Amino acid sequence: MRWTVHSEKPLYTDRWLDIRVADVEVGEGRRLEHRLIRSAPGAGAVLLDGLGNVLLIWRHRFITDTWGYEIPMGAVEEGETPIEAAAREAEEETGWRPGPLRPLLYTQPSAGISDSEHHVFVAEGAEHVGEPVDGWESERVEWVPMERVPELVRERRVVGGSTMNALLYVYATG
């Protein structure tokens, strides 16, 4: 059943988030207020080295107080395409410039509460160009064997939805 949106009102807005309340009809005249978050799209990259390894960052997420591996990913800036953002984020967060990127997957990581959309690309190869520009993004950057992906998911060392989707997709499709 398709929900009907009668109105949306902002509750809080800044440059990163637009939190709203929507008056929605969910069928048979039943209406409710539903909170939602609108945000800019994100883009990320899976960088492979051709030797069976993937470049990941190891970082802490204060909101959940957890550590985990992630692919480099961030917001698509004004005037930037998702593929340009993925290349920029990869280089800024890892110090590695990706080879030619190609689309890997598109995901809506929290469609029940947010319109966030993530565009993930993959590159076969990367060139080390220096230290990460955003050194505060992670504790370390490392090449991790793709064969370890299921183990890392099982051990909760990969928990972010877009990272997990991308890595398991690459693992499953070779």
Rank of each mutant, 00 (worst) to 15 (best):
T107V: 15
D65A: 13
P103H: 03
S110I: 12
L32P: 00
R61Q: 11
I71G: 03
L55G: 04
M1F: 11
W96Y: 15
R140K: 15
M1R: 08
G174V: 00
G95T: 02
R157N: 07
P72L: 08
S114C: 13
I71Q: 03
P98H: 07
A87G: 09
R38F: 03
I37A: 10
M73Q: 12
E127H: 09
T107K: 05
H34C: 11
N165F: 10
R2E: 14
N53P: 03
E80F: 02
A87W: 09
Y169D: 11
L51M: 10
D18L: 11
V26L: 10
V122K: 02
N165S: 13
L36Q: 11
E131A: 14
I63A: 14
Y12G: 00
A22Y: 02
V76W: 01
H6N: 07
S110E: 15
A86S: 07
L47P: 03
E33Q: 12
L104Y: 10
L104E: 09
W58T: 05
A85C: 08
G160A: 12
E137G: 00
R61Y: 11
M146P: 01
V159F: 14
L11W: 01
H118E: 13
Y106T: 14
L105G: 05
G74R: 01
E89R: 11
W67H: 12
G52I: 09
W67N: 05
V24T: 07
G44V: 05
A86W: 01
R88I: 08
E137T: 09
A126R: 04
S7M: 02
G68P: 08
T4P: 00
E124Q: 15
M164Q: 15
K9I: 06
R156W: 11
V158C: 03
A90D: 02
M73F: 12
R2W: 12
T163F: 04
R88S: 04
T66K: 14
R154K: 15
A87Q: 06
